[in-house]
Protein backbone atom coordinates (compact mmCIF):
# COMPACT_ATOMS: atom_id res chain seq x y z
CA UNK A 1 0.00 0.00 0.00
CA UNK A 2 1.13 3.56 -0.62
CA UNK A 3 0.97 6.28 2.02
CA UNK A 4 -2.08 7.75 0.29
CA UNK A 5 -3.79 4.38 0.38
CA UNK A 6 -3.00 4.12 4.11
CA UNK A 7 -4.30 7.65 4.64
CA UNK A 8 -7.73 6.53 3.44
CA UNK A 9 -7.96 4.64 6.75
CA UNK A 10 -7.00 7.58 8.99
CA UNK A 11 -9.21 7.87 12.08
CA UNK A 12 -10.95 4.62 11.25
CA UNK A 13 -11.25 2.27 14.21
CA UNK A 14 -11.57 -1.48 14.46
CA UNK A 15 -14.71 -2.96 15.96
CA UNK A 16 -13.95 -3.59 19.68
CA UNK A 17 -12.89 -7.16 20.44
CA UNK A 18 -13.75 -8.82 23.73
CA UNK A 19 -10.60 -9.97 25.56
CA UNK A 20 -10.79 -12.02 28.74
CA UNK A 21 -7.77 -11.60 31.01
CA UNK A 22 -6.75 -15.02 32.33
CA UNK A 23 -4.40 -15.46 35.27
CA UNK A 24 -2.64 -18.26 33.38
CA UNK A 25 -1.89 -15.88 30.51
CA UNK A 26 -0.51 -13.32 32.99
CA UNK A 27 1.64 -16.04 34.59
CA UNK A 28 3.08 -17.17 31.24
CA UNK A 29 3.80 -13.57 30.27
CA UNK A 30 5.52 -12.80 33.59
CA UNK A 31 7.59 -15.98 33.26
CA UNK A 32 8.57 -15.10 29.69
CA UNK A 33 9.82 -11.64 30.66
CA UNK A 34 11.53 -13.07 33.76
CA UNK A 35 9.61 -10.95 36.29
CA UNK A 36 8.93 -12.88 39.51
CA UNK A 37 6.75 -10.13 41.01
CA UNK A 38 4.30 -12.00 43.32
CA UNK A 39 1.49 -9.64 42.24
CA UNK A 40 1.56 -11.43 38.85
CA UNK A 41 2.17 -14.98 40.07
CA UNK A 42 0.97 -15.56 43.60
CA UNK A 43 -2.76 -15.36 44.30
CA UNK A 44 -2.34 -15.15 48.07
CA UNK A 45 0.25 -12.39 47.90
CA UNK A 46 -1.89 -10.49 45.38
CA UNK A 47 -4.99 -10.93 47.55
CA UNK A 48 -3.12 -9.50 50.54
CA UNK A 49 -1.90 -6.49 48.51
CA UNK A 50 -3.84 -3.28 47.94
CA UNK A 51 -4.94 -4.68 44.57
CA UNK A 52 -6.76 -7.62 46.12
CA UNK A 53 -6.10 -9.89 43.15
CA UNK A 54 -3.57 -10.81 40.48
CA UNK A 55 -2.60 -7.89 38.24
CA UNK A 56 -0.83 -7.86 34.87
CA UNK A 57 2.64 -6.45 34.07
CA UNK A 58 2.61 -2.98 32.47
CA UNK A 59 3.22 -4.13 28.89
CA UNK A 60 0.76 -7.06 29.03
CA UNK A 61 -1.97 -5.15 27.18
CA UNK A 62 0.09 -5.43 24.02
CA UNK A 63 -0.96 -9.11 23.87
CA UNK A 64 -4.66 -8.29 23.44
CA UNK A 65 -6.56 -8.68 20.20
CA UNK A 66 -7.50 -5.16 19.06
CA UNK A 67 -9.23 -6.26 15.88
CA UNK A 68 -8.58 -5.20 12.33
CA UNK A 69 -9.51 -1.91 10.69
CA UNK A 70 -12.00 -2.91 8.02
CA UNK A 71 -10.45 -3.09 4.57
CA UNK A 72 -6.91 -2.24 5.73
CA UNK A 73 -4.98 -5.24 4.43
CA UNK A 74 -1.28 -5.30 3.65
CA UNK A 75 1.72 -7.62 3.75
CA UNK A 76 2.87 -7.65 7.37
CA UNK A 77 6.33 -8.96 6.49
CA UNK A 78 9.26 -6.68 7.31
CA UNK A 79 7.36 -4.36 9.63
CA UNK A 80 9.51 -2.56 12.19
CA UNK A 81 8.21 -1.50 15.59
CA UNK A 82 9.34 2.12 15.96
CA UNK A 83 8.00 3.12 19.33
CA UNK A 84 5.40 2.28 21.94
CA UNK A 85 3.71 4.17 24.78
CA UNK A 86 1.26 3.13 27.48
CA UNK A 87 -1.01 5.27 29.64
CA UNK A 88 -2.68 3.59 32.62
CA UNK A 89 -6.04 4.43 34.13
CA UNK A 90 -6.11 1.47 36.50
CA UNK A 91 -4.30 -1.87 36.77
CA UNK A 92 -5.40 -4.77 34.59
CA UNK A 93 -6.76 -7.51 36.86
CA UNK A 94 -6.99 -11.24 36.24
CA UNK A 95 -10.62 -11.86 35.41
CA UNK A 96 -11.12 -8.52 33.64
CA UNK A 97 -13.24 -8.53 30.51
CA UNK A 98 -11.90 -5.78 28.28
CA UNK A 99 -13.05 -4.43 24.94
CA UNK A 100 -10.11 -3.54 22.75
CA UNK A 101 -9.92 -1.55 19.56
CA UNK A 102 -7.32 0.27 17.49
CA UNK A 103 -7.43 3.37 15.37
CA UNK A 104 -4.99 4.65 12.75
CA UNK A 105 -4.19 8.22 13.86
CA UNK A 106 -1.26 9.29 11.67
CA UNK A 107 0.56 8.31 8.49
CA UNK A 108 3.80 9.92 7.36
CA UNK A 109 6.76 9.11 5.13
CA UNK A 110 10.50 9.31 5.66
CA UNK A 111 13.40 8.26 3.46
CA UNK A 112 16.32 6.62 5.13
CA UNK A 113 19.12 4.21 4.37
CA UNK A 114 16.53 1.46 4.00
CA UNK A 115 14.69 3.43 1.31
CA UNK A 116 11.23 4.93 1.58
CA UNK A 117 9.45 4.12 4.80
CA UNK A 118 5.84 4.70 5.77
CA UNK A 119 5.19 5.35 9.46
CA UNK A 120 1.81 4.16 10.71
CA UNK A 121 0.74 5.49 14.10
CA UNK A 122 -2.01 3.55 15.90
CA UNK A 123 -3.85 4.27 19.12
CA UNK A 124 -5.17 1.27 21.03
CA UNK A 125 -7.72 1.36 23.83
CA UNK A 126 -8.66 -1.37 26.27
CA UNK A 127 -11.89 -0.43 28.04
CA UNK A 128 -13.94 -2.15 30.71
CA UNK A 129 -17.50 -3.34 30.23
CA UNK A 130 -18.84 0.08 31.26
CA UNK A 131 -16.69 1.71 28.55
CA UNK A 132 -14.13 3.28 30.92
CA UNK A 133 -10.57 3.16 29.56
CA UNK A 134 -8.22 0.85 31.49
CA UNK A 135 -5.11 1.34 29.38
CA UNK A 136 -4.42 3.28 26.22
CA UNK A 137 -1.38 2.77 24.02
CA UNK A 138 0.19 4.33 21.00
CA UNK A 139 2.38 2.42 18.56
CA UNK A 140 4.44 3.49 15.58
CA UNK A 141 4.91 0.76 13.00
CA UNK A 142 7.30 1.28 10.09
CA UNK A 143 6.26 -0.21 6.76
CA UNK A 144 8.76 -0.66 3.95
CA UNK A 145 6.54 -2.48 1.50
CA UNK A 146 5.70 0.25 -1.02
Amino acid sequence: MTSDEFRAFLNKASKPVKNEVEKGAIRKFAQAIGDANPLYLNEEAAAASRYGKIIAPPTFSRTFDYGAIEGMKFEAKGLIHGDERFRYFRPIFAGDVLYCSRKLVDVFERSGKLGNMTFLVYEQTAADEAGNPVVQSKSTIIYRGA
Binding site: D35, N37, L39, S49, R50, Y51, P57, P58, I80, H81, G82, D83, E84, R85, F86, R87, Y88, K138
Partner: peptide, 18 residues
Protein backbone atom coordinates in the same frame (compact mmCIF):
# COMPACT_ATOMS: atom_id res chain seq x y z
CA UNK B 1 9.56 0.98 36.82
CA UNK B 2 7.17 -1.31 38.70
CA UNK B 3 10.02 -2.46 40.99
CA UNK B 4 10.69 1.22 41.61
CA UNK B 5 7.14 2.34 42.40
CA UNK B 6 6.31 -0.83 44.35
CA UNK B 7 2.82 -1.38 45.71
CA UNK B 8 2.68 2.11 47.22
CA UNK B 9 3.24 3.99 43.98
CA UNK B 10 1.44 4.15 40.64
CA UNK B 11 2.87 3.95 37.15
CA UNK B 12 0.97 6.53 35.07
CA UNK B 13 2.59 6.49 31.65
CA UNK B 14 5.70 5.26 29.88
CA UNK B 15 6.94 5.13 26.33
CA UNK B 16 10.08 4.06 24.50
CA UNK B 17 11.60 4.27 21.06
CA UNK B 18 13.29 1.12 19.77
Amino acid sequence: LTDLVGTEGTLVDFGVRF
